Amino acid sequence: MARKVIDTPSEDVVARAKKDRAAKRGPFAGIILFLKQVIAELKKVVTPTRKELWSYTAVVLVFVIFMMAIVYGLDQLFSWIVIFVFGTPGA
Rank of each mutant, 00 (worst) to 15 (best):
Ile39Val: 15
Ile6Arg: 04
Val45Thr: 10
Arg25Tyr: 02
Pro48Leu: 07
Ala15Gly: 02
Lys36Ile: 05
Tyr56Trp: 12
Leu35Asn: 01
Lys51His: 10
Ile70Asn: 13
Lys36Val: 04
Asp12Gly: 06
Gly26Gln: 03
Arg16Leu: 06
Glu52Gln: 07
Glu11Tyr: 02
Ala29Phe: 08
Ala40Met: 03
Phe34Trp: 13
Lys36Pro: 00
Ile39Phe: 15
Ile6Tyr: 14
Lys43Pro: 00
Ile32Leu: 14
Thr47Phe: 03
Val14Arg: 07
Met67Cys: 08
Val45Tyr: 11
Lys24Leu: 03
Ile6Pro: 00
Asp20Pro: 00
Glu52Leu: 09
Ser10Met: 11
Gln37Tyr: 06
Thr57Cys: 12
Val13Ile: 10
Ala23Arg: 14
Glu41Gly: 05
Val62Pro: 00
Thr57Met: 13
Ala58Glu: 04
Ile70Asp: 15
Ile31Ser: 07
Gln37Pro: 00
Val60Asn: 06
Leu33Arg: 04
Arg50Ile: 14
Leu35Gly: 00
Ile70Tyr: 10
Asp7Lys: 08
Ala69Cys: 03
Ala29Ser: 05
Leu61His: 06
Phe63Met: 15
Val5Phe: 03
Val60Leu: 15
Val5Ile: 11
Val13Gln: 02
Pro48Asp: 01
Ile6Val: 15
Asp7Ser: 11
Val13Ala: 05
Ala23Cys: 09
Thr8Gln: 13
Lys19Asn: 10
Ile70Gln: 15
Phe66Glu: 09
Glu41His: 03
Trp54Met: 09
Ile32Ala: 15
Lys18Met: 11
Ile39Ser: 07
Ala2Met: 09
Asp12Tyr: 02
Thr49Asn: 04
Lys51Trp: 11
Lys51Asp: 11
Glu41Thr: 05
Asp7His: 12
Ala22Cys: 07
Phe34Met: 07
Ala69Pro: 01
Leu53Lys: 09
Phe34Ala: 03
Ser55Ala: 14
Glu11Pro: 01
Arg3Pro: 00
Val5Ala: 14
Val38Asp: 09
Thr49Met: 05
Tyr56Ala: 13
Arg3Met: 06
Met67Asp: 07
Ala2Gln: 08
Ala2Val: 14
Val62Arg: 04
Glu11Leu: 06
Arg21Val: 11
Phe28Tyr: 05
Gly26Leu: 03
Tyr56Gln: 11
Glu52Cys: 06
Phe63Ser: 13
Val59Gly: 05
Phe34Gly: 00
Pro9Trp: 02
Ala69Asp: 04
Lys51Phe: 13
Ala58Leu: 13
Arg21Asp: 05
Val62Ile: 15
Val60Arg: 07
Gln37Val: 08
Val14Gly: 02
Val62Ala: 15
Val13Cys: 03
Ile32His: 04
Leu53Cys: 03
Met67Glu: 08
Val13Leu: 10
Leu42Asn: 05
Ser55Val: 14
Asp7Pro: 01
Lys18Tyr: 07
Pro27Ser: 09
Ala69Trp: 13
